[in-house]
Amino acid sequence: MAEMAAAGLAEGIAGAGVRVTPVEAGRIWLVSGVEMPANTVAGGQYWLAPGRVLVVGGAVPEGALVSEVGDGFVVLDIGGARWREILAMAGTLPAGALEPGMCAQTLFAGVRMLIAGRDGGIRVFVERPLSAWLLDWLRQAATSFV
């Protein structure tokens, strides 16, 4: 039964100046016992808390506890000319927190998420069960741009 169809990812959103595209981020692990500077991203490794990181892609990581959680996330890239306005609509993350190489966990439209800076936008990791709701929110937010 190996050909279990990968759960259909939500289709993207293309508003005026806003693009939301699902990302097949590969395998993802939650790893405890790994230290790294707070709120930084290095080589697919995202800081979550002291001694806890999210590892995206690459080989199976080492750590005190390693849990594969790729299925627990939907990864979305939010870009387009006015992505900053979507971020401003969704939460109060300080601008400086999302320079490339930085990441932050924050409330985005009331939903707790991991966000990483990319050139031309942000990559968000949202809990799968909340992804449908978030996409509804993003769809509506995108209609606010003329």
């Binding site: 016992g33 001694g51 806890r52 849990s67 959680v69 790729g70 299925d71 627990g72």
Partner: peptide, 9 residues
């Protein structure tokens, strides 16, 4: 350490 893996399964 604690890992919330609710959404993964």
């Amino acid at each position: 350490v604690f890992h919330d893996v609710t959404a993964a399964w």
